[in-house]
Structure formats: structure tokens, C-alpha cells
Design a protein around this nucleic acid. Structure first.
Length: 604
RNA sequence: GCCGGCGUAGCUCAACGGUAGAGCGACGCAUUCGUAAUGCGUAGGUUGGAGGUUCAAUUCCUCUCGCCGGCUCCA
């Protein structure tokens, strides 16, 4: 981003030189949104204005529109904007009394603006006039439209007024703006690049998974290659968890609704649950794994000596998500959580939480993720919500989470009122290539379920005590994680996760026999099978290589008569190209080393 | 769920009231080839589904299913 600084006009008419580029960019975008609003009101006089802020990627403006605008209208609006910009219109601030402002906007029929002004404290407020458009706005703005940079309108979408789905729906026009034309072009290129990495597109191209109309929306068919990657992810996790004392279980996919009544899900999570009638009974397709794990915990009397008990499951759950929210692998109706529940004594909680954060960090780093954001969600005692657990419980739990975060040295954002009703939590999110945040790891206290199921252990005093329960997931859901992983690597999985690690390419039929020998040797290698396939099709080498490249296979092993003669393979790396010939055992060793270290090669 | 857009061969896309087409892929034949596409041929479609308007619908209208961009919600 270029150094950006310019003079702005503030609400009281003061002229200020903005030197912070980030702030200047925000002002530029906000001012561009006003220009758009002016263009829209000129073209379609019947529209009413909502709000039009700058965002991290650009800007938008919400309009109430009697005639529905479509994508085709964007071009017209953009042209109008260009035209208006060239008139060098000034942004003119004014301070007016609330009373006068209300009178003005009421007269204009701007009921949305009126609503915002009415809720505003104070007797005076500011407006900005651009052309004939007067907007209630605190500014600041650029001086005049000639200061605006390059802009482009991107999309049009619905949005609820004030983000409330019970209120009317407006039309939102998204756009972006940059100081320089070249920066805008770079941004548009970036969007296109992101599109190429879209996991839905790559899922199809690399034959990893699909979603079939005839099955249902939001339910994933994992094809052999996608299933292989998932299996590798699960295998790695299982190993790491078992090392740390987790015990794996399996629990049924359906259970009588009574169980969900006890857990409280039937009451609080009902609209998200699939229910099935069965004879006189009603069954529920499990939306969560906790009740099953709890019943396993409860299957015997637990002594303080055996705590903590850590019960883990790759548990597949089903949730009735709203149809409009479904999105490839990232938002689905059936998904598998890498779920676990820790049952422990109060004095063990801090260590457990800290260890779990350690584990999360280790696991996420192993997959090549290091740009993470951490949020601590706590209650808002003032919200008057129906929280489970006592104020002391909440205070203690929060202090444990904070201590654990401090031990890790993680910076985090404290989100008041964001906790679930049953306990505070730490969430780890990852920002994907399209700039969207996806929650992966979560660590949640639960004050509700131990109560509802009366979960106890026998203490040293031989009396029953309530156990502390923590829900935790590291990858969140395997579906979502797979989606994030695909986009992160643009489909070129690191060697240890690649569904096919090497493709053997015989030069002609004459080398088929040797190719299959190499395949056998690698599949039956001493340190474990290497995932290798052979392309025996009647095609030229170049053709097979091109396809392997497009399939992002880490190694291509070209074999012809020379290689058969010397018992070698000609190695080609998907990023570095030709690597020369080596003995089959040498190649196997190379692969094992890279896999053991979970190396992420250059070129991603 | 809501608002807007879009559904044509396995995939990517043409045709937009007048007999549905291309490239890639698949299959067959020839070729036996050295690091990102060998040539020729063949098959493949109730244009997502149902109804309607019309002499005639892939094209226009209604409903429905699905997908896409957002909003709300969320792993």
C-alpha cells in the first residue's frame, strides 16, 4: 500500500492533515461510499439511505430500494460516480441541532436516518453535504471528490437493517477503493487468486469431495483422495492425543429425546436438531457428542485418583443449519468434530487447560498454521442472561483461562458477553485467503452439564464432589479444517498429507514392467507404505507430467530404459522440477525424512 | 430462513423464441514416445424438476429443488 496522506475536513470545518496511511485509507473509502450514495440517489431518487461505512476491504452502503437493483445496475452507478467525481464536488460539513436535523431528514422521508438520529445522545450532530446529498455523518471526509482514488463496485447483496433479521431488508452495495489504480488492480488480482484457491473448486479439480443434490445440501461425500487426507489428519491427531492420556470412544448417532432433554439441548438447541419419530418415542440425531461422553464417564463410580478423565472421539454430528448459510466444507449440516471432554478436579483445571492450549498450538503448527487469533469469551453479568453456574464459578473459570493464556504468552481479545450461557471459553480462529475468519480450536468450561447429569467423583473425604467439565476441539470439524487446509495450500498438500505422494510415469509400454516393480518396492517399503500410483495410460511423458502437476502430486518418478537399467528413478518435484536420478531406496529415505518432519516445501 | 443472481454433456462454457454446439475428459484405433497437452474416430443431453403462455420454449411467466454473493446464525 502506498504512503497515503491528505488534508481532511472535520465536522467543525477544521482542516486536518492525515498522516496515518491506514486512517487515510478508511477516510478515502468512507468518502467514496458517500459518492456512491450520491450517484445512487441521483439515478434512483426513490431510494432511502441506510448506513455506509468503510470496511477492512473497502466500503458499502445500505439502501432501501423500491425497485430492486441488480448487478447490472452497478456499471451504471459506477459510471455516474466517475462523472460526479470529475465535477470536483466539495464535502461540506455542518453542525446542526438534533431537532433541526430530525426535521430535515423527516421532510426528506429518510426514516432510517431519522431513527439513527433519534437514538443519538446530545443536542447537536454533524452532517456532510456532497452535491445535493446531505448525510448524517461524523466524518471526517476528504476535501473534495477530486481527492478520491481508484474505486470499483463489487457486489450487491441483501442486509437486514441494523443487522436484525426481524427488521426490513435493505440492499447493500459493496465496493472498494484505493489511492492508486495499480493498487486496485492488485486487489482485484488478489480476489481472482483467492477464487482459484477456493476449496470448492479445488475439491472438484483434485477429486477430494463432493456434495450431491440427491443426498442433501450440506452433507459431504468424501472421495478416496479426500478421505485419505482426512485419515492422515485423524491418524496424526489420534497419536498426539493418546500420547497425552486421551481415551478414544465411539458413541451412537441417535439417541432418545429424553437424553437431550436432560442435557438441555432439547430446550436450547431444538431448532438446530434433526428429530426422528420412532414408534411412540422420538429420537434425535446427535448435534453434539457431550451426552455420550458423559454417560461413559458415569458408567462407573469415579475416584479422585483416576481424574482427569479425557474422553475423545471423532464424533460425527448433525445440525439443521439454515440453508443460506451452507458453504462448501466450511459450513455444513453433518460434520465430524475432533471432540473431547475433560473431566477433572478443580485443582487440575489450570494444568489441563494449559496442556490443551499447548496441544492446540503443536497441532496447528504441524499443519503449517501460525497466523492465529485468540479470543477469550466471558459473560456479561449486566446482560441479565440466564447463566448456568454461580458468579464464583465464572470468576474462577475466567481466571484459570487468563492464567493459561498468560502462561502461553498468547495475546488475546477479551469478548464480554460472548460466552455461551453454560461457561466461558477460549476460541482460536484462523483467517483464510479470502480474509474470512474461521473458528478452529475451542476450549469451553461447562457449568451446566455436570449439574444436569450430576457428574461427580469421590474425593479423599469419601464424599461425592462435582467434577469440572471442559469441552475442547482442536481442529473444530474435520470438514471445515479440510476446507481451510485446501485453501491454505491451494490444494498442494505438504508431503505428509498428500493423498498421492508420488506418481510413477513410464515413458512407454516398454517400461511398464519396471514401473510396476518400483511401485511395489515403494508400497512395500520397510518403513511403511509410500502412497504411490502409476500412470500406465498410452500417453506421452509430457502429457502425464502436465496432469500430475495439475493434480499437485509432490513427486513424479519418470522411468524409462535408462532407469530400468540402473535401478533408479528420474525424480521431478512439483515445485522445483527435475531433480536428477536416484536409487529407489534413496528416494524412499528422502520421502520418509520429509514426512517425519512434516516439511512444508517452498512453492506454496 | 431472508434479499439478489445463476442452473445447458463427467468438467469448463456457447446458442437467448425457430432442428442444442465447442474444448477438455471418457471410449476405440494408430503411435512406443525422455520432463506441463500425439493424431484420427466414436459415444455422450427429456437444457435441474413440475406446470403455464405460444404454431413453436434452453430462451418468456409461475411454482419447486439446488448452487453462488451477502445478511442473520455458527464448528
Amino acid at each position: 500500500m502506498s504512503e497515503l496522506r491528505f488534508r481532511t475536513i472535520h465536522r467543525d470545518g477544521e482542516v486536518v492533515e492525515v498522516t496515518d496511511s491506514e486512517e487515510a485509507l478508511q477516510i478515502l473509502r468512507h468518502s467514496t461510499s458517500h459518492l456512491m450514495a450520491l450517484a445512487v440517489t441521483q439515478l434512483y431518487p426513490e431510494v432511502h439511505l441506510g448506513i455506509g461505512p468503510a470496511t477492512s476491504e473497502g466500503f458499502y452502503y445500505d439502501f432501501q430500494t423500491p425497485r430492486r437493483l441488480t448487478e447490472e445496475d452497478l456499471e451504471t452507478i459506477e459510471k455516474k460516480m466517475q462523472e460526479l467525481r470529475s465535477q470536483d464536488l466539495p464535502f461540506e460539513p455542518s453542525i446542526v441541532s438534533k431537532k433541526k436535523a430530525l426535521k430535515f431528514f423527516k421532510k426528506e422521508g429518510e426514516h432510517l436516518k431519522t431513527e439513527l438520529i433519534e437514538e443519538r445522545d446530545g443536542e447537536i450532530l454533524s452532517c456532510y453535504k456532497l452535491g445535493e446529498l446531505v448525510d448524517f455523518c461524523t466524518g471526517p471526509h476528504v476535501f473534495s471528490t477530486s481527492q478520491l482514488g481508484a474505486f470499483k463496485l463489487l457486489s450487491i447483496a441483501g442486509s437486514y437493517w441494523r443487522g436484525d433479521e426481524k427488521r426490513e431488508q435493505l440492499q447493500r452495495i459493496y465496493g472498494t477503493a484505493f489511492p492508486q489504480e495499480a493498487e486496485l488492480r492488485d486487489y482485484l488480482d488478489h480476489l481472482e487468486e483467492a477464487l482459484k484457491r477456493d476449496h470448492r473448486r479445488l475439491g472438484k479439480q483434485l477429486n477430494l469431495f463432493s456434495v450431491a443434490d440427491r443426498v442433501a445440501p450440506g452433507l459431504i461425500l468424501w472421495h478416496p483422495k479426500g478421505a485419505k487426507v482426512r485419515e492422515l489428519i485423524e491418524g496424526f491427531l489420534r497419536l498426539e492425543l493418546e500420547k497425552r492420556g486421551y481415551q478414544f470412544v465411539y458413541t451412537p448417532h441417535i439417541a432418545k429425546s429424553d437424553l437431550w432433554k436432560t442435557s438441555g439441548h432439547y430446550e436450547y438447541f431444538r431448532e438446530n436438531m434433526f428429530t426422528l419419530p420412532l414408534d411412540e418415542e422420538e429420537y434425535v440425531l446427535k448435534p453434539m457428542n457431550c451426552p455420550g461422553h458423559i454417560l461413559i464417564y458415569q458408567s462407573s463410580k469415579r475416584s479422585y485418583r483416576e481424574l482427569p478423565v479425557r474422553i475423545a472421539e471423532f464424533g460425527t454430528v448433525y445440525r439443521k443449519e439454515k440453508s443460506g448459510t451452507l458453504h462448501g466444507l466450511l459450513r455444513v449440516r453433518g460434520f465430524t468434530q475432533d471432540d473431547a471432554h475433560i473431566f477433572c478436579r478443580p485443582d487440575q483445571v489450570l494444568d489441563e487447560v494449559t496442556q490443551t492450549l499447548d496441544l492446540a498450538e503443536h497441532v496447528l503448527k504441524s499443519f503449517g498454521f501460525d497466523r492465529l487469533e485468540v479470543a477469550l469469551s466471558v459473560w456479561d453479568p449486566a446482560a441479565g442472561k440466564d447463566y448456568a453456574g454461580s458468579p464464583e464459578d465464572w470468576k474462577n473459570a475466567e481466571s484459570v483461562l487468563v492464567q493459561a493464556l498468560e502462561r502461553k504468552g498468547w495475546s488475546y481479545e477479551r469478548c464480554e458477553g460472548e460466552a455461551a450461557f453454560y461457561g466461558p471459553k477460549i476460541d482460536v480462529t484462523l483467517v483464510d485467503t479470502l480474509g474470512r475468519s474461521w473458528q478452529l480450536s475451542t476450549f469451553q468450561f461447562d457449568f451446566s452439564l455436570p449439574e444436569r447429569f450430576n457428574l461427580t467423583y469421590v474425593g479423599t473425604d469419601s464424599k461425592d464432589h462435582h467434577v469440572v467439565m471442559i469441552h475442547r476441539a482442536l481442529l473444530g470439524s474435520l470438514e471445515r479444517f479440510m476446507g481451510v487446509l485446501i485453501e491454505h495450500y491451494g490444494g498442494a498438500f505438504p508431503l505428509w498429507l498428500a493423498p498421492v505422494q508420488a506418481l510413477i510415469i513410464p515413458i512407454s509400454e516398454k517400461s511398464h514392467h519396471y514401473a510396476l516393480e518400483v511401485q511395489k518396492a515403494l508400497r512395500e517399503a520397510e518403513r511403511g507404505p509410500i502412497r504411490v500410483e502409476t500412470d500406465l495410460r498410452n500417453e506421452k511423458v509430457g502429457y502425464k507430467i502436465r496432469e500430475a502437476q495439475l493434480q499437485k502430486v509432490p513427486y513424479m518418478l519418470i522411468v524409462g530404459e535408462r532407469e530400468a537399467e540402473s535401478q533408479t528413478v528420474a525424480v521431478r518435484n512439483r515445485f522445483q522440477g527435475e531433480q536428477g536420478s536416484m536409487k529407489v531406496e534413496e528416494l524412499a529415505t528422502l520421502i520418509y525424512d520429509l514426512v517425519d518432519q512434516k516439511v512444508v516445501e517452498e512453492g506454496h
